[in-house]
Amino acid sequence: MTSEQRLRIAYSPCPNDTFVFDALAHGRVPGAPALDVTFADIDLTNGMAERGEFDVLKVSYAVLPYVLDRYALLPCGGALGRGCGPLVLTREPGLGGTSHAFGSGGLTGRTVAVPSERSTAYLLFRLWAADTLPGGVGEIVVLPFHEIMPAVRDGKVDAGLVIHEARFTYQNYGLHKLADMGEHWESTTGLPIPLGAIIARRSLGPDTLTALASAIRSSVQAAWDAPEISRPYVMAHAQEMDPAVADQHIGLYVNAFTADLGEAGYAAVRGLLTRAAAEGLVPALGPESLAFP
């Protein structure tokens, strides 16, 4: 990889992504390629990946089974963690009571808004529902994630599956947490929660992929070493988010797994996609699909 090489990359305007890529996007990682950055929410980048439109993308782990023939999973730059899973929100507290009562009411037969049916949040939701809702949910409605909480508040849907900073802001809409998909995942697997992945074209070649991963790690470390440098970039794209919420967002989603998936990270990814395939939600992974480079 040379410094003159430009890569087309698409990631979200969310604080964790702008924080991670700030140094790399602004040419502050020596020897790294220049980036042509496109901002798009993850439901859009998932589609971009399936169409093979960019060199590097931030996508949901849920989309990997559909794109790993063309893209490689990078071992860094993504979002995994603990205590950071999607939430199911309702307008009324305790819809259906405790988790032990879900089968006798709750979300059974109800309309649920989700950000994408190709999102990791949706896979986690479906795995939770398979364990706790023997009657199944009713209609699934796909909405942009920023429209989900207003739709629940206004009674347009019975419940909403939310991601990102909604963990910190849902009470502003008068909503209530029915269940935490991450808690369910962690309690049943003991693994961290896989959310967003960084993928890059396999055709870039192993040397470029390895160098790109190293550059992303350097960008992450630079942001940790001097977070004040990344602040203007983060806030310029944070969609009027309160700075304190942006800091919470970064603190939750940028962690040791962002620097290196490691054994536990890869186990979480394999665990999610293996369980989802067993439920018929995604195609099964090949044995070497997650190998890098």
Rank of each mutant, 00 (worst) to 15 (best):
S218K: 10
V157S: 07
G103N: 09
G136D: 13
P232H: 06
T132H: 15
T258V: 08
H100Y: 15
R6M: 08
P243Y: 10
R118L: 03
A25I: 05
E288Q: 14
E117W: 05
E186K: 06
F54G: 03
L143V: 05
E288I: 10
L281K: 01
Y61N: 00
A259R: 12
T208Y: 15
G265I: 08
P227A: 10
D154F: 06
I163C: 08
V29H: 03
A166M: 14
Y233V: 12
H237E: 11
D17L: 09
S230K: 08
G174D: 13
P15M: 05
Q248E: 14
A278Y: 12
H164R: 13
A166D: 15
R51I: 10
D180P: 08
P232V: 07
P150E: 09
L133F: 07
S12I: 12
Q221D: 14
H184A: 14
F19H: 00
H146T: 10
L209V: 03
A226G: 08
A246F: 05
V63C: 04
H100P: 14
V245T: 14
L87K: 00
A25D: 10
L87R: 01
F19G: 00
A238T: 04
L261P: 00
P134D: 13
L281Q: 02
E165R: 06
A101V: 01
G109K: 02
G265V: 10
H184G: 12
A101K: 02
L212M: 11
T132F: 11
H184L: 13
L68W: 00
F168P: 09
M149G: 03
A72M: 00
E186F: 07
D154N: 11
P30F: 09
L209W: 01
G155P: 04
S289I: 04
D41W: 15
R201E: 05
R201T: 03
P93K: 07
E240F: 12
D69R: 11
A197Y: 00
L209T: 01
M149T: 06
G190V: 15
G136C: 11
G205R: 04
C84Q: 03
P150V: 09
S230A: 15
L57Q: 08
A277V: 12
A244G: 10
G77L: 02
V162W: 07
P194C: 02
I229T: 15
Y66C: 02
P86D: 09
Q248C: 14
V56F: 06
A215L: 01
Y66N: 05
E92Y: 14
C76H: 03
R28G: 04
P287F: 11
H237L: 10
A211G: 12
L191S: 06
G103I: 04
G155D: 07
I199D: 03
L68T: 01
P115Y: 03
N172D: 14
T111H: 14
G94T: 03
L143I: 05
R91F: 07
C84G: 06
L204H: 01
H100R: 15
H26E: 13
Y173M: 07
N46L: 12
L191H: 05
V29M: 04
P192F: 00
G109W: 01
V142Y: 02
Q5V: 14
